[in-house]
Amino acid sequence: MNVFRLTGDLSHLAAIIILLLKIWKSRSCAGISGKSQILFALVFTTRYLDLLTSFISLYNTSMKIIYVGCAYATVYLIYAKFRATYDGNHDTFRVEFLVVPVGGLAFLVNHDFSPLEILWTFSIYLESVAILPQLFMISKTGEAETITTHYLFCLGVYRALYLFNWIWRFYFEGFFDMIAIVAGVVQTILYCDFFYLYITKVLKGKKLSLPA
């Protein structure tokens, strides 16, 4: 555990909680892509199946349970409790265009051809692109609530911090996992455009709105 890894995890946790609180407090999931949230629930489910097979640490186990639990709670709020506020007309990204190629890739490029390992690989690849329905929705509506941008910022920064964690681990522990690194780079790149808008607009007190 190093400082980048820990702050990355905390940033990830902050993102998840910001989103849950935003929906809960406003009693609305307007502007949130339910499809991205379903993909994240799928990511956590397929990645953390090792909860059933191995114990790494109390930290590891509790964070996994919190991530999975919050992911399903978010999906429940969007598709059940506050379904009336869900903006399905703007959430039109075709997720099969992500899930099918990512599934195929997980079968072809993995560390070990075993069910758990393929599912873990699938989750890594899927996470890297799972935010696309959300970014697509924002590009369609041309705007995002400020609280939603805070969520996206924390979620994007988390994987960027993991990149520094992997550099650290490579130098000090000789550890590297090419699948996670490549997917992590892709994931971070997808946020770059958003980071630019966040820094130049939201941090200066303006609402995030895209030119028509």
Binding site: D9, I56, M63, K64, H111, D112, Y162, D177
Partner: peptide, 10 residues
């Protein structure tokens, strides 16, 4: 043989 990476990360 098992060449999987330990999954200590989240």
């Amino acid at each position: 043989e098992d060449d999987t990476v330990p999954k200590d990360e989240l």
